[in-house]
């Protein structure tokens, strides 16, 4: 299935990337080129094959329930483009 401009517009919004209207069509062509190429995977018989969840044979490691971090709001917000005290600030959200 080939992507059209509207598909690309939707994907761009899902990904929150502004794509100027003029670039939608060329981008659709590029993406279709890549998708057309990866579609060769349909040749592979994968019936009953488990999708991979981890390349190495490991079990999930875990931590104890102990407080070991935090308490440094300055380090947390220091790099923020906009802040108010120790809060991050963003354009007003209307709910």
């Amino acid at each position: 299935m080939a992507l059209d401009r509207d598909d690309v517009r939707k994907i761009a919004f899902l990904a929150r990337i502004k794509v100027p209207d003029a670039e939608l069509a060329p981008l659709a062509d590029e993406l279709n080129g890549i998708i057309g190429w990866v579609e060769q995977l349909s040749e592979v018989d994968t019936d009953g094959v488990e999708p991979m969840t981890s390349v190495t044979e490991m079990t999930l490691k875990s931590r104890d329930d102990a407080v070991s971090d935090a308490g440094y709001p300055d380090r947390v917000v220091r790099n923020a483009p906009d802040r108010a005290g120790d809060f991050y600030a963003v354009p007003k959200v209307v709910e």
């Binding site: 994907i11 761009a12 981008l27 993406l31 994968t46």
Partner: peptide, 29 residues
């Protein structure tokens, strides 16, 4: 931008199994 959009597409509703799951199965093979 291209890769983020490809990635967004292959995970999106209706395409996840055909692309992402398939690729992870191929990876197992």
């Amino acid at each position: 931008r291209r890769r983020v959009m490809i990635g967004t597409y292959v995970l999106s509703a209706g395409y996840y199994d055909a692309y992402y799951v398939k690729a992870q199965q191929v990876r197992t093979k």
